[in-house]
């Protein structure tokens, strides 16, 4: 019922909508030229490509945000109202994080593209002699990703211990990509573990024995998987089969020991430890 969607031709969008055309009169060819000259055409093309890559749920809000960031970076480039160094760095950090969040990591190309954008954006801040991201900024980025994903602090510090670089070290792009990806996967892992706990816990308390049985099975599955052995994925999957898991839980319940409970926090951090054992330390 709504207006027929215009064909996706980048050339099309330079033409104003018919309503406006009626109000302004016939569109002179000069307008297209004008839009090209002042950079509207290129700007919109890039914006559209970013939207298509990220596929946000609400593209309009996404575009508002996108142009706001763009306006900020323009102001920075032209030197108008340059904020002091700390503020400048904060802005760069914000923008890098924003890039990293644009696309879910499962959308490989988009995510990798955004990681490199974030990396580039952070590199500008360093003295021209040594381009690259240093360890301090790198840790800050990882910390921000985890905090905004509401990962518990103790898990965060365990992760950072594994993938930390020294403050003065230059961080190569590969390390940067590996670590940011690890953070995002960890966040998702934690949220999955959280919903797992939600299932285990009835009436506000989860039985410790059952929790441990589940964690044990999960651990076995994780340990069995090996990046370089494709069949190990199948093996891991089969270890987590519903009947396999149920068997383990059943066994745990049958062993009649005095029952105690396990808090969500404990459960999450134990699950996270399982995950972290698979994280390869850098260096």
């Amino acid at each position: 019922m709504m207006a027929a969607s215009p064909a996706l031709k980048l050339a099309e969008k330079r033409r104003p909508v018919p309503v406006a055309a009626a109000a302004v009169g016939p569109v002179p060819a000069g307008e297209a030229e004008f839009l090209r000259q002042v950079g509207v055409t290129g700007m919109l093309r890039e914006a559209l490509l970013t939207v298509l890559e990220a596929r946000p749920e609400e593209p309009v809000a996404f575009l508002a945000d996108y142009f706001e960031k763009l306006a900020l970076s323009r102001a920075e480039e032209t030197g108008g109202e340059v904020p002091g160094p700390p503020a400048l760095q904060q802005q760069r950090l914000d923008r890098a994080i924003w890039y990293l969040r644009l696309a879910h990591y499962s959308q490989r190309t988009a995510f990798h593209n955004n990681v490199s954008m974030a990396y580039e954006c952070l590199s500008i801040g360093v003295k021209k002699k040594r381009p690259g991201v240093n360890g301090r900024i790198y840790s800050e980025v990882l910390r921000r990703i985890c905090r905004e994903g509401e990962a518990p602090e103790d898990i965060l510090s365990l992760l950072l211990k594994k993938i930390q670089c020294r403050d003065y070290e230059a961080v190569p792009y590969d390390v940067f990509r590996y670590s940011t990806l690890t953070c995002f996967v960890l966040l998702e892992f934690i949220s999955k573990a959280n919903s797992l706990y939600h299932v285990l816990d009835d009436s506000g308390q989860a039985d410790k024995r059952v929790c441990q049985a589940v964690l044990g099975t999960l651990g076995e599955a994780i340990m069995a998987s090996d990046l370089y052995v494709p069949t190990s994925y199948l093996e891991a999957g089969s270890k987590l089969r519903p009947d396999c898991l149920a068997l383990a839980m059943d066994k745990a319940l049958l062993a009649r020991r005095p029952s105690s409970s396990m808090s969500r926090r404990e459960f999450l951090s134990e699950a996270a430890v399982l995950f972290l054992t698979k994280v390869k330390p850098i260096n």
Partner: peptide
Amino acid sequence: RHVLTYIEDAVSQLL
């Protein structure tokens, strides 16, 4: 999501 509707409108407003 009518993205192009808004982009077109934005351009005509700009002009």
